[in-house]
Design a protein around this nucleic acid. Structure first.
Lengths: 102, 102
DNA sequence: CTGTCACATCAGTCCAAGCTGATATCAGTC
DNA sequence: GACTGATATCAGCTTGGACTGATGTGACAG
């Protein structure tokens, strides 16, 4: 069984600011203005990161007048958690597999 | 409750080659030579990545003569899986929290 | 329709980090 | 000791991607 983790998804979450955004969105649904306040990042920068998160399917948007709400998609995060759990489980099972030196 | 994920740890795992190494090590304990064969990467490159993984505590080494065995630490991966699971859980709970527009 | 505000896009800069070749180190073998 | 093979370290090159300022677009208020 070759448990593999979604590389692209991790890379998306590996940026400090993006992870901060995701953490904030795990608590409540916010729009860009709120995120600017919370993170202190420039609007342009934030907008770029939100685009990455959106294209990766990590967040979904809900337009509301001239505002845009961002919501975290729990299933995506859950899938990732599962992949890591499988990896850890696999490592535990194969703890004593040691390939012989060539 | 502010569930936070270890940024440094994710960044370490966000590299494709490093994630490949981790996946291989989840199946069996290997030494550098094996990893060179499996991944096709140069020895120097691999050694650099292994250093990063070692310093992050993701893998542990076991010298064996002139070989060095690398073993994955399941607890570290498990902790990460738990952090993501918490994040997803938090997002589910707070699904309807929507901060009002300013 | 005009101004303002929220948000996205574009073009350019800059730096962290991945990759490499050369070299060092250390363990076995002869 | 001399030699070979396994692994680590070093210095330099190069590139992806994060950040920014300027600008575009679209929605609401007046």
């Amino acid at each position: 069984m070759m448990t593999s983790v979604d590389t692209d998804l991790i890379r998306v979450l590996a940026d400090p600011l993006r992870l901060r955004i995701v953490t904030l969105l795990a608590e409540e649904t916010l729009c860009t203005t709120h995120l600017v306040e919370e993170t202190g990042a420039r609007q342009t920068n934030l907008s770029n990161h939100l685009r990455v998160l959106r294209e990766a399917g990590v967040v979904e948007t809900e337009p509301c007048g001239r505002y845009t709400y961002y919501r975290l998609r729990p299933d995506v995060i859950d899938r990732l958690a599962g992949q890591f759990a499988d990896l850890a489980e696999s490592a535990r099972t194969a703890a004593d597999n040691k390939r012989a030196c060539p």
